[in-house]
Design a protein around this nucleic acid. Structure first.
Lengths: 305, 305
DNA sequence: TAGAATTATCGGTTTTCCCTATATCGGACC
DNA sequence: GGTCCGATATAGGGAAAACCGATAATTCTA
């Protein structure tokens, strides 16, 4: 059996005439006759009762043709489905982003994205870096926005932009008196950090030359689960923290108890990249997505392409 | 696209491994790879995201494979349908019979038929000869039991048995005194007849050398619509009629006011045949049906095979 | 009885499918 | 780092199938 054969028998059932059916199927009448004969042999039944003068379908033939029609409909559906997905920009794009980036970046790009790529449906998720990479591996997401370098291996990485760290301290903190915050100031300060697994914590520690988390002892209970929580803690005077640029842009106006200050250090930034499986087939969708992202970043970040 | 291709993509979707899928489909791995590649090209989309190390289905691929599964199910259904109809004895057999035969023959054969050919479902209809032939032509029935010769042409005819005509007259009719009813007696008698179109009326007229119906004038109002009605008329003394053998066997015991007598004439019988389209494919079903009919006729009829 | 219409058959050509062998790539192991 | 193992992809040739044109066979029509 064969989709072609089914098309043939449906045509004959419709036309009750081998010649006309053959014409409809764009084959010669002998070809169509032969194929139908072969199908009948294969099924072991007579589908059409032929005389030299007429063609009539048998009762079994009738029910089988009904099934054949359904099959051909389904096949058409498959072709249409494929058709509508031929444009790689069309269809859902599943993007994951780290939690210290997503809430501040997404509001900037969602609307432009909807305007520029209305056919692309963005499916967002927020996870920590390791979880994102794991989900990439399991094909649960198509790409991840992270701020940690990954080995080439199975993934490709496209650097998007560098994002400076700002210092956030409470209104009446000693830092308020200082004009410039130096590397030394930072080194002597205990920062409030996000809980384990958040890359921001590691990056902050690196910037401040802090020791590994494991050696810090009882500071652990001050590790917050989200940047928002962290800023709340800063707001009520618990201490300072480092905040990436996009988050600063997002919060600066809202809270009078938090002072955010640019750091002078050259290396106080993190590099945000898009990571995806090297084999991901809709590369053009990613390129289009990247373009929208870069076009809608504030000028406080440094674009990399 | 192709049923084989769909089988291939379902296999790959199930196995996530070209080699294993190829094994399941009993083809080599390059063959399967090539066909899937070709299908992807034809559809213009990527169904599977492959690395040298692994295979994962794309979202479009997922939905397409779902449709493919349904198609394959339908195809399986077709094959099963064909399978269960491969025995020509299986399935409905639509038999039409003339109204002067059906009520007396069918009771004799229905039970034996159900015993001997339980898989064959008999669909009965009763019509006049012309209507039966028309329905044969339109494939509405598969065969007809009639008592009139038909031209070979599109139909085949198998004679089944000869059925004698009996004379039926009321209890106190002049015929009662006679020991033998002669041809001459009949010729001088006006018979009650069935209404136009029933072959029995023509046959009775022929046996009695009656003139054509059109010339009979006001006898028309005594033409009955069924044999049972005719016999009721005989029973209440309206006149005589000819009754075919099987009907006599059916009614003889029931009515004390009707006398049935065998005719001595050699040609006072009608030939009952089975007629069917020459192209009808289930000839064996007809043969089996005929065998059951012949095996269950009373010995008062003369079997012809 | 000739002609038109219709399905079946035949021989040869083209297309498709399939297989074996091999290339290529990525990961694992030493 | 080299080598082997496990995957998928590619190439070439051979077998099967599908297809076509021409023609036969049959039946209806005029």
């Amino acid at each position: 059996m064969n989709l072609r054969d089914l098309k043939y028998i449906v045509a004959v059932a419709d036309c009750s005439h081998f010649g006309h059916a053959a014409e409809r199927c764009h084959v010669s009448q002998p070809t169509l006759s032969g194929q139908i004969r072969k199908l009948e042999d294969e099924l072991g039944i007579t589908l059409f009762e032929r005389t030299k003068r007429s063609v009539a379908i048998t009762p079994v033939g009738e029910t089988i043709v009904a099934h054949a029609r359904e099959i051909l409909e389904q096949a058409k559906t498959i072709r249409q489905l494929a058709q509508s997905h031929q444009d790689p920009l069309v269809g859902p794009l599943r993007i994951g982003a780290i939690m210290t980036l997503s809430p501040y970046l997404m509001p900037l790009i969602l609307k432009p994205l909807r305007d520029r790529l209305p056919q692309m449906q963005l499916v967002l998720s927020e996870e920590m870096t390791e979880t994102l990479l794991e989900r990439l591996r399991k094909h649960e997401i198509d790409a991840a926005l992270i701020a940690t370098p990954v080995d080439a291996g199975e993934f490709s990485t496209i650097p998007l932009f560098d994002e400076a760290f700002w210092l956030a301290h409470p209104r009446n903190h000693p830092f308020q008196e200082k004009k410039n915050i130096t590397q030394k100031d930072l080194d002597n300060t205990e920062l409030l950090l996000l809980s384990e697994g958040h890359c921001l914590a590691d990056q902050a520690m690196e910037v401040c030359h802090m020791k590994a988390r494991a050696e810090q002892g009882d500071m652990a209970d001050l590790h917050a689960a989200s940047l928002e929580t962290l800023l709340q803690l800063v707001g009520v005077g618990f201490g300072c923290t480092l905040v990436p640029d996009l988050a600063v842009q997002g919060i600066r106006m809202n809270d009078k108890d938090i002072i955010t200050r640019r750091l002078q250090q050259k290396d106080a930034y993190r590099r945000v990249s898009l990571v995806f499986r090297r084999s991901f087939p809709r590369r053009q969708a990613l390129d289009a997505f990247i373009e929208v992202v870069l076009d809608n970043l504030p000028d406080t970040v440094i674009r990399l392409s």
